[in-house]
C-alpha cells in the first residue's frame, strides 16, 4: 500500500531524513520507533503533506500513485490520515461541524452522497461511544481548551469517523494515562482491517502492548536502522535505543 524509497527531507536547510525506505502492506500494523530527534514526526508530517518540509530526494508511492504530488487535502480524500502529535486548537469552529465537513469532503471525492446533520448524528454518536467520549464534545470548538488526553482521543475519534485506508498515529500514546491509553488502543484495534494499514509512530513500547504491531522499524538519525517483528519492540524497551544506535547494522538485519 505504501512504499517509501530513499526519502530525504530537509527542514530549514537541515537534513532530517537521510534515505528512509519503508514498505507497509494493506492490513498491516506497523510501528516506527525511535529516540527523540530521529525524524519520526518528520516522516509522519511529510506523508500527510506538510509543506514546510522539503523533500530533496526519493519517492513515496501510495496505492501506486505518487503521494508527494498530492496536496494535503487530496491525500486525505485518497484515504491518508495523520493523528497529530500536537493537535491544533481552532477556536470558533465546532467539532461536529468540522467532522461533518471533513467527512463530506472525503465522501464527495469517493462519489458518495454528502451527509446532512441528521444523518451524521447517529454515526458520530456511535464513534463517540467507541471512545467513551461525551456528546458535549461535539459543540465545543476543535481542541480548544481540551486536555492533552482529550486531544489525543479526539484524533482517534476523527480516525474512526473518516475511516482512512492509511492511518498514521504520531505519538498518540504520549501523555496518556493508562485508562485513556486502553481506550485509544481499543479504538484503533476496532479499526484494524485487511484493507487498512496503520502506522504507529512512538517513542515508547507501552502502546504496543495494547496494539500489537505486525512489524517494527527503528528510526535513528534519519535512517531505518533495524526492522523486525513485535519482539524488536520488547528488546528495545529492555536495552534502550543505545543498543541500535551503536550497532546499527549487526544486531538485527534491516530488510533487504
Amino acid at each position: 500500500m505504501l512504499s517509501v524509497r530513499n526519502l530525504h527531507v530537509k527542514v530549514g536547510g537541515r537534513e532530517i531524513l537521510k534515505g528512509v525506505d519503508l514498505e507497509v502492506a494493506a492490513g498491516e500494523v506497523c510501528a516506527i520507533m525511535g529516540p527523540n530527534g530521529s525524524g519520526k514526526s518528520t516522516l509522519a508530517q511529510v506523508l500527510a503533506g506538510q509543506e514546510t518540509y522539503e523533500v530533496t530526494a526519493g519517492e513515496v508511492l501510495y496505492e501506486g500513485q505518487n503521494l508527494l504530488e498530492l496536496n494535503p487535502e487530496q491525500r486525505a480524500r485518497e484515504g491518508v490520515f495523520l493523528a497529530f502529535q500536537y493537535p491544533v486548537e481552532i477556536p470558533g469552529i465546532g467539532t461536529a461541524y468540522f467532522l461533518r465537513a471533513a467527512l463530506n469532503a472525503i465522501r464527495k471525492h469517493r462519489g458518495l452522497d454528502e451527509l446532512d446533520a441528521m444523518d451524521f448524528l447517529p454515526l458520530i454518536r456511535e464513534k463517540l461511544k467507541l471512545l467513551e467520549m461525551d456528546d458535549a464534545l461535539l459543540s465545543r470548538a476543535i481542541n480548544e481548551g481540551f486536555s492533552g488526553g482529550e486531544k489525543k482521543r479526539t484524533e482517534i475519534l476523527q480516525l474512526a469517523v473518516l475511516e482512512p485506508r492509511l492511518a498514521i498515529l504520531d505519538e498518540t500514546d504520549s501523555g496518556l494515562d493508562i485508562d485513556a491509553l486502553k481506550i485509544v488502543a481499543g479504538g484503533v484495534n476496532a479499526l484494524r482491517d485487511p484493507e487498512r494499514a496503520i502506522i504507529i509512530v512512538t517513542h515508547y513500547q507501552r502502546l504496543l502492548s495494547y496494539i500489537v504491531p505486525d512489524t517494527v522499524h527503528v528510526l535513528v538519525a534519519g535512517r531505518i536502522v533495524a526492522s523486525g517483528g513485535r519482539e524488536l519492540a520488547l528488546e528495545l524497551e529492555e536495552k534502550g535505543y543505545g543498543w541500535v544506535e551503536t550497532e546499527p547494522e549487526s544486531a538485527v538485519p534491516a530488510p533487504a
Binding site: 503533506g49 509543506e51 496536496n71 494535503p72 487535502e73 486525505a76 491544533v88 471533513a102 469532503a105 472525503i106
Partner: peptide, 11 residues
Amino acid sequence: AIFYLRSRGIS
C-alpha cells in the same frame, strides 16, 4: 490550523 483542516480533506 490551515494544514490541520486540509489534512482532514478540507480544501
